[in-house]
Amino acid sequence: MLKKFTALFTFCLVFADTILAQMPAVEMADELRASGKIYVVVLIMVIIFIGVVIYLINLDRKISKMEKNQK
């Protein structure tokens, strides 16, 4: 009984291994990262976001000033 089980288990392992080996490699942007240029994208996105944040900070300050004037 135990022998049968071990045999089945080994068979499953080998089978799963062959299936996994047959799966095509998933395409990822490895080259983009390797060439280093992805950092440009990161920089640009961060700059745009910081630009929006600076805009919000200015707005916040202006509103604070107006609140002080109103009081």
Partner: peptide
């Protein structure tokens, strides 16, 4: 702001 910048940088890299 800091957490979103983290998510932009590490989200891409």
């Amino acid at each position: 702001v800091f957490l979103i910048i983290i998510s932009i940088v590490f989200g891409l890299l």
